[in-house]
Design a protein around this nucleic acid. Sequence first.
RNA 1: GGCGACGUACCCAAGUGGCUAAGGGGACGCUCUGCAAAAGCGUUAUGCAUCGGUUCGAAUCCGAUCGUCGCCUCCA
Length: 464
Amino acid sequence: MSIAIYNTLTRSVQEFTPLNEGEVRMYCCGPTVYDYFHIGNARSFVMSDVVRRYFEFRGYTVTYVMNITDIDDKIIRRGNDEGVPSSQVADRFAAAFLEDSARFGIRPASMHPRATQTMDDMIAHIQGLIDNGSAYVVDGDVYFRVGSYQEYGKLSRKNIEDLEVGARVEADTRKESPVDFALWKNAKPGEPTWDAPWGKGRPGWHIECSAMAMKYLGRTFDIHAGGNDLIFPHHENEIAQSEALTHQPFAKFWMHFGFLNIDNEKMSKSLGNFFTAREILDKYPAEVIRFYYLQTHYRSPLNFTHEGLDAAKTGLQKLQVLYDALGEAPAGSGTVDVAAHEQRFVAAMDDDFNTPAGFGALFDFARDVNTVLHAEGGLDATSRDAARDLLHRTTVEVFGVVRTESAGGGDKLLDDVMQLVIALRTEARQEKQWALSDRIRDGLKELGIVLEDSRDGTKWKLGE
RNA sequence: GGCGACGUACCCAAGUGGCUAAGGGGACGCUCUGCAAAAGCGUUAUGCAUCGGUUCGAAUCCGAUCGUCGCCUCCA
């Protein structure tokens, strides 16, 4: 059994076979660091993170590269607006990106190369394209000669003629064709520049990803991922400029993540109707947001709503509670066929990372385990440990939606105090002092601490 | 105009030719409980935008219609 992935290149689900056995090399287009990233970006980053984690779950070694674009028009503009060097803007938001990613539970990539630190590779790449006739220099700018690459349009299914007809009227007349794109932009006053054989300037956007991907993953690698909107022109151009140089396939699989909408409208920085990742992280735990994202298949659009997040929060508790319960359940006698449930989970995920179906399998699993766990005989140690292990590998390791630490937040002093409070209240309850018991419970609730009485005693946890 | 996606219960959402249409939320019922909360169990779509067609058989394939959206320009 193997993993099947929808490949944008072929517009079909194909069996995944890595170039090197047991090893996956994947690249995901990272952020341009001119601002905090938003919840739409976050969806892509989380999805890519889960793809990477699932490959690891399936036993692959994953080399995962995500670039940080730290030189770009928007960064320069922001720097000028703030009256600071653009590098300072880039550094600030690159740090914020790593910070927010960590808060989201997104594991750091194997490496996060930066464009400005890959300059030599970009220049060499561009020089190679000039040398073999795929690119040309005009007044210090370098353009890719799209017409020279026969397969242009194979990813986005566009043809050059249509693009030329539809091109903007104010097309740059210095270009041989309106569809040619910039590999290098001539130095302008107030912009950072680098030296290149054809003159000072800075790289175009697309070339960065080609250079960084090839530098760390090789000329041909397994998977290239990114948002839907990057198919054209970004990824199309990456393929053209890469394959025009190497004459070998760039990425074997192209994965594209669906967009996140708000009120059924596209969300983007330019429209301004966006929430930053930080804003949402301040309102909901990262696990809830991840679960919310993962309840929709990665290729489908996701309409972001407050209600949806609240529903996700409630639903996720079921898995968290079971995970916690299995950690402390005494051994009983009942059994559950954990392996069968794992197979269902794997089958769902192997099918193009069908995370909603994967969760369907896990919730069915949870129900089966709960039924036995709460029944008279309880769950035997073998099933219990196997169930906890599967839950850990799926909900914690692959999805990152369940917490492993206790609900008290690991505060020893607070826990000790609470144990004392609970002990006193338990005494009151044993003496049927209901009014006092309820006052304690209500008072704690005001403070954000929830008490739950059960047959096995009283537990406390921090409320939301 | 060109290319493409989608329309499944009150909400979200899997399923793309064949057993009773997953799963989550909500609602309702029950169990547990001093009460509450939490948790657990159960119920909740003879039907998958509409109309035709292909087929022994379709949510799933084909056509038309209606509706929503995306890309073609910076964008995850």
